[in-house]
């Protein structure tokens, strides 16, 4: 059995999780402190991938990232059908899984925490990094684990912008599809079982942690 699709999936999941974590921390800061009455618009935009069919997002990304697309024209980077393109697509598609749990946890903290920090001379960023984020540490962990797991399970977006290139874009979910198409059901079975087990372990980890 070829394990390279799993290594590729793990690499994609890890990189996407790190990229999203780094992106979402300032995004939540901006939405929480500065968006005011516009907050619902930002939240809706960030949650769009939750309800948008993956093929729709994948299609728009393909148009943007293809060799003659506007991203290539602006930056010179050809991201379609490359691993880097998968990272861009995964980051967009998994954004709500990282952003929503952290933002919700921050918004559920009592207002008096940040007000107390303000009256102790700490500005918004200091309050955010030294009070609010440490108070929601379990949510940071849960958001990261869910993002990683969700990225591992992606299919539609990946297929649209990455295709099915061995060792480049053929991640585990695509490999299952590939094996089924080739009527290699035994291999597909094993791949599927591994992904199922992985998903269960991740969810047990998240909910077990919450129960604790």
């Amino acid at each position: 059995m070829n394990f390279s699709p799993f290594f590729l999936s793990a690499e994609l999941g890890l990189i996407t999780t790190i990229v999203l974590f780094v992106m979402v921390i300032p995004m939540v800061y901006g939405i929480h402190f500065f968006s005011g009455k516009w907050a619902p618009i930002w939240k809706a935009l960030a949650s769009l991938p939750l309800i948008l069919p993956p093929t729709v997002l994948g299609y728009y990304l393909l148009i943007a990232l293809r060799p003659d697309g506007w991203v290539a024209q602006l930056t010179g980077l050809e991201l379609a059908f490359s691993f880097e393109g998968l990272v861009v697509g995964s980051a967009l598609y998994s954004l709500p899984f990282m952003l929503t749990p952290i933002l919700t946890a921050i918004e559920n903290l009592p207002d008096s925490y940040e007000e107390a920090a303000f009256t102790l001379g700490k500005n918004r960023w200091q309050t955010y990094t030294r009070v609010l984020l440490p108070c929601v540490k379990p949510s940071l962990l849960a958001a990261s684990v869910l993002t990683f797991a969700h990225t591992i399970g992606e299919f539609g977006v990946i297929l649209m912008i990455g295709g099915n290139i061995p060792d480049e874009t053929r991640v585990a979910s695509i490999a299952i599809y590939h094996e089924v198409e080739a009527l290699h059901y035994a291999t597909a079975d094993r791949y599927a079982l591994i992904l199922l087990g992985f998903s269960l372990v991740v969810l047990l980890g998240v909910y077990g942690k919450r129960l604790n």
């Binding site: 008096s112 007000e115 107390a116």
Partner: peptide, 12 residues
């Protein structure tokens, strides 16, 4: 200096 009614001590 503000002493809040709900104390607002940082729990962490």
């Amino acid at each position: 200096g503000f002493a809040f009614q709900d104390y607002a001590l940082f729990p962490h």
